[in-house]
């Protein structure tokens, strides 16, 4: 699913290399835990995997397509179609309601809109189904501004959004760091269950090593990244 080779990246030409990965590969349906200290370039790696940034060297392949060979617009469409992203916190757009937030990827990807519609009849119904799966009742919370949801609820909504339209790759960037211990546990089990349902590959970034146990594989940034970054 993910194939990186000789990838080099820095934000500014004057910076030292931040990312220097000779090889990284993640198989289909694999659940991978990526850990590393703050500033080690984990989130930067997401920019590369999502095709938002391109490396100065090397190739980044997702699902067999080399992103570095594609134009920016095509990469953006590719990301919309194939990748579901979950951020650390404040994942939701404040002026959209619950369902509209979940439906959002379908507005940029016809493919995901089509798949969502095939599943539930309409993208909105698919959004509601996903929300119920992660134990959020859209009928009860639907009218509230999303900013009034608790941190845990917001992160679960973000999971529903990353899953709508069944993208093959889910990337989560420290999604649990704003959650307390109990909520974190139930969040993780829901995430695993939903990702398994869709059959997606999961790349989970965190510096909380205690979460690593349930994953198929554990990667450590300093081991895959040859750059001198911390």
């Amino acid at each position: 699913m993910i194939e990186l080779s000789n990838v080099r990246f820095r934000w500014r030409a004057s910076d030292p290399l931040l990312i220097d990965i000779a090889k990284l590969s993640v198989g289909n349906g694999e659940r991978v835990f990526l850990e590393g200290p703050s500033g080690s370039g984990k989130s930067t790696l997401l920019n590369l995997l999502g095709g938002v940034m391109v490396p100065e060297d090397g190739t980044v392949s997702i699902d067999g397509a080399d992103l570095t060979a594609l134009r920016q617009g095509v990469r953006d469409t590719f990301r919309a179609d194939r990748i579901g992203l979950i951020f650390q916190m404040f994942n939701l757009i404040p002026y959209l309601d619950l369902v509209d937030n979940v439906v959002l990827p379908c507005k940029f990807s016809t493919r995901r809109a089509r798949i969502a519609r095939e599943k539930s009849g309409s993208v909105e119904d698919e959004a509601r189904r996903l929300l119920r799966n992660i134990e959020i009742d859209p009928d009860m919370l639907g009218d509230r501004p999303v900013a009034t949801l608790s941190a845990g609820q917001q992160q679960r909504v973000a999971v529903a959004r990353s899953l709508i339209g069944s993208p093959q790759l889910i990337i989560a960037d420290e999604p649990t760091s704003a959650l307390d211990q109990n909520v974190r546990q139930s969040f993780m089990s829901l995430l695993f269950k939903e990702v398994a349902d869709v059959g997606a590959t999961l790349l989970f970034v965190s510096h909380d090593a205690s979460l690593a146990v349930d994953f198929d594989r554990r990667l450590i940034m300093s081991e895959i990244n040859e750059s001198g970054a911390k």
Binding site: Q72, G73, T77, F87, I93, F108
Partner: peptide, 16 residues
């Protein structure tokens, strides 16, 4: 800015 990053994440282009 956060909103823009979220939009980029779900597939928006800078032109969007």
């Amino acid at each position: 800015r956060r909103e823009m990053a979220i939009l980029r994440a779900v597939g928006a282009r800078p032109t969007h």
